[in-house]
Every structure is written in structure tokens, then in C-alpha cells.
Design a protein around this nucleic acid. Structure first.
Lengths: 175, 175
DNA sequence: GGAGTGATACTCGGATATCTGGTGTCCGAGTTTTCGCGG
DNA sequence: CCGCGAAAACTCGGACACCAGATATCCGAGTATCACTCC
């Protein structure tokens, strides 16, 4: 059971996007450079987030990505679902219906396997708990914890970098 | 995020072993035939369970496998750990320390990354909840739910098959 | 008839091929910007 | 000087190789069984 490595990059990028000014966007190239990862591969993850409706893309020059909704409404489950897919980790192959004994039962009683597989049900219960836990971890909570976890030095440098790389909403005056 | 398909077979086999008489064993060949799966591949899973101390193996003719402890003390987490490994599904690559900005901070402040990554911490919190949920799902609970989920017909056929295929503990008298 | 002994057959165990899905990369579609031209 | 238009440049989007890990398999190590021989 492993999650795609791209998830880490995707969440980091989303955290960065949360710090953008209203309507501003950030190109994938800048995000890749900041995090020291491959731009080509990062695009793959960002596109998945875009398809899932977590972020929005703006094409063309001065384009980029931005969050599609507020950080409080984006959970880690959204990222996992977007990148890993929504299918359960435990894929029941119904092997309980395989083999000679199982086949004999199916032949005699059409309702023999109407009830769900107990093993599958148990695994899915645990997964549901996992998903609920992921749903409680919002982007906002992660951002709120950052001041306690990163140095003021990095905070300032990141802010400066963001100011230099964000693209204001098109047509908007600088103010 | 996907779990190995072998997990399903492994748990089904363990359920079957739980129905064995005290000390009796069941060979992998019989288990594979019953469940309609490849014996060679099933052996791989059973060996993993054996290494993890969930089941015991008895070599030689009239050998086989049996549970190493009571079904109440075997949880689904044990199976997942044995087959998937105990490493977290989310593997933090510490990309927060990569890139030019992060490197600059590391150079100025040796303690810059002493605190854990907030994203990693959040993902691990959810995983801990998942593992706790898996730990609550014992083999005993699954077995207890079987009478409600499978037909009496299959129950009887399975019992018959088990009686025909189990190997009593060596040297023990039949009576 | 009983015990000892060797061969045998059956079991698990680890090492070895194969193949799907994740990883990494590339080129194309679309849009904005920008430069040049004309009025 | 201003408006228009075409070319260019930059962005995201989807399609294409590559590789690690899971899947599937095989052969070897070890042991109880069984048959045979000898006492």
C-alpha cells in the first residue's frame, strides 16, 4: 500500500497557492522550480487536481493555477481521491465465489452470495474511517500550523518569492 | 493507493485455519485448490504471514499451516503489515527542503527543518487512525459474522471439506 | 514379529521471470501578449 | 498618437517511453512417511 509520490508535491503546491492574493495565479514552472521537482511531472499532478475541481487553470501567457475554493473547503481526501482515484485500496476479487465448493453452492442456491463478503466489509469499514480522518485534515489547518513549524526566515523568503512570481488577475490594476 | 491482491487470499486462508481442530494443520495446496487460486502465489502470501508470526508452518509430509495464536489476537492490521510492509503509505520525500529557497534557509539556520513537515504529520495522523481501525477488526469478529453472511449449505460443505483435508497434529491419536 | 535403515514423497522456503501501473518526458492546442503597420 | 491585426511566445493539456514493484512461477532444502531388510 503506497501512495503516489506526486501527492506530496501536489499538496505543497496547493499550500503555496493558498497564499496567493485574490484571483492571482501561479504557473507550474515557478512551482516546480521552487520545490525543486520536475515541471513535466508536476504538471501531471496539477492537471489531476484541476480535473477534480480542487484548483483552476488559466491558459496562455500570464496564466497558471489557483485554488478553486477556500482552503477550509479543501481536504487531504480531495488530494488522495484526485491523484489516487476513488476506488477502494482493498479490491475484493470475490475469491469466496471461486473454487469447487463455492461453485457448488452458487449452483444450488442463487442467493448464496447475496450478502457482502465479511472480509471485504471489514476492510472497507477501516477504509471509511481513514477517509473520514483525511476529510478532517483541511488545507486551512495545515496552513494554520505553518507558523509554528517553519522558521520566520523561510516564511519571509517564501513571501518574497511569492510576490515576485505570482501573476495578478488579468486586467486588474496593480492598485 | 492499492493493496496487494494477495491480501484477500491470505485472510480467507486464515479464516479457514481458524476452523481447524487444535494443533491440526492445512497444506497450502489444499487452501489454493479450495479458493481457486494459484498455489505458487498463495505460498508467497502464506510465507509472509509465517514470517510475521501470524501463522506457523509445519514442514514435511502431513505438514501445512496453522494459526500461531487465537483469532481474537489476530487483526486485519497484522495481515496488512505482513504483506504490505509496515512503512507508511505516505512517504514524505522532504521536498520542503528542496529548491533554492529551502536550501538558503537550511544554510542560514541549522534548525530550520527540525520540526516535522506539517503535511507529512497530517497524512500520518490519518494513517494512524486507519491502522487503529484495522486493529479493531479481528479475525474473531469476521468469523463471528460468517453464520449471518453465508448460506448453511456452504457452511456444511466447507466443514466437510475441512474434515477431509486437515492434518491432525502429528502423533496424536484419532480418538 | 519388531526394530532399524534407507529411499521416497511431500511439504515449505527462497530465488527467478514476466507484466501491469506509476514515473518521467515530450509535443500539440489554445490564449495572451507584443510588435509592427496603417490611419 | 491611437487603433488594428498578425505573429510570436508562453501556458496548460493529453499522448508517449521507461522502470520499479507486484504478480506468477520454478527449483531446491528439509522432514515425516513408507517399504524393506535384518535380527
Amino acid at each position: 500500500m503506497k501512495l503516489s509520490e506526486g501527492i506530496e508535491s501536489a499538496i505543497h503546491c496547493a499550500v503555496m497557492m493558498a497564499a496567493l492574493e485574490e484571483g492571482a495565479v501561479l504557473p507550474a514552472k515557478a512551482l516546480a522550480e521552487y520545490h525543486g521537482v520536475s515541471e513535466s511531472y508536476l504538471l501531471k499532478q496539477l492537471q489531476a487536481l484541476s480535473r477534480a475541481g480542487i484548483i483552476e487553470s488559466v491558459p496562455g501567457p500570464s496564466g497558471g493555477y489557483r485554488l478553486a475554493r477556500s482552503p477550509a473547503e479543501i481536504t487531504l481526501l480531495d488530494f488522495v481521491d484526485a491523484i489516487e482515484g476513488t476506488e477502494p485500496a482493498f479490491r475484493c476479487q470475490e475469491i469466496r465465489q471461486r473454487g469447487p465448493i463455492a461453485a457448488a453452492c452458487a449452483g444450488r442456491d442463487a442467493q448464496a452470495y447475496a450478502r457482502p463478503c465479511a472480509i471485504n466489509a471489514a476492510m472497507l469499514r477501516a477504509e471509511t474511517v481513514y477517509r473520514q480522518a483525511l476529510r478532517r485534515e483541511t488545507l486551512q489547518l495545515i496552513i494554520a500550523s505553518l507558523p509554528r513549524n517553519i522558521s520566520p526566515e523561510k516564511w519571509r523568503l517564501a513571501q518574497d518569492w511569492l510576490g515576485a512570481n505570482q501573476r495578478p488577475v488579468r486586467g486588474a490594476s496593480v492598485g
